[in-house]
Amino acid sequence: MRIGELAARAGTTTRALRYYEARGLLPARRDEKGHRAYGEEDLRLLEQIRTLRDFGFELEETRPFVECLRAGHPEGDSCPASLVVYRRKLAELDALIGQLTEVRETVAGQLRRAERARDALAADAPAPGGPEPLCELGGQFS
């Protein structure tokens, strides 16, 4: 298939495919007329790249998975290098979850503090129909 068809089937652009080719992630095969030629295996490579990118992997982190597929493994994540990337990504995610948990706890604490302050102000507020609040300058509002 030609580059436009591959791009359409993969849900990407021809520009992205050329970039992947330049980065060595997509093979650069040519037909007899000099046009780029791709097969179903290239579509599978692109699906693997896209799935990993959707999960937050950097483009270079997809390389071991692509190479694993090219080596003939039915899934791109069964090779040792792919497993290393998975482990590293899990460690990054765990660290981010820890940071987000800390931020969440801080925000929850701020919310509790703000609600207590609001409740304290409400408890000190005059009852409806009561006296007018005093102005900070000592007078009453009229």
Rank of each mutant, 00 (worst) to 15 (best):
L43R: 02
G76L: 06
E47C: 09
A37C: 11
E61Q: 14
E58P: 03
P80H: 05
F57N: 05
R63K: 12
T51N: 08
R50W: 02
R53M: 10
A37D: 13
S78W: 00
E58V: 09
P64E: 05
P74M: 01
C79I: 10
L52Q: 03
L43N: 02
T51D: 12
F55A: 15
T62F: 02
P74K: 00
E75Y: 05
R44M: 11
E67W: 01
R70F: 00
T51L: 12
V66T: 04
A71M: 05
P80W: 07
E75V: 11
E41L: 08
E61M: 05
A71F: 00
R53Y: 06
S78T: 15
D77P: 07
L45N: 02
L43H: 03
A71H: 00
L83W: 10
Q48K: 03
F55K: 14
S78F: 01
V84M: 06
T51G: 04
L45R: 15
L59N: 08
H73I: 06
L45K: 08
L43G: 12
E47N: 05
L45E: 11
D54Q: 15
E41F: 10
Q48I: 10
R44T: 15
E40S: 15
E60T: 11
R53Q: 15
G39M: 07
E40Y: 02
L59G: 08
G39K: 05
L43S: 08
G56Y: 01
S78P: 03
D77L: 03
L52C: 07
L69R: 08
E61F: 01
L43T: 11
E40C: 04
A81I: 13
C68I: 07
A81V: 13
Y38Q: 03
G39V: 12
C68N: 06
E40L: 14
T62M: 02
F57A: 10
E61H: 04
F57Q: 05
E58L: 10
H73T: 12
L46R: 01
E60R: 09
F57C: 08
G56K: 03
R44Q: 15
A71P: 07
L46V: 13
I49T: 06
A71W: 00
L45M: 14
A71E: 13
E67M: 04
E67S: 04
R50Y: 02
L46E: 03
E58F: 06
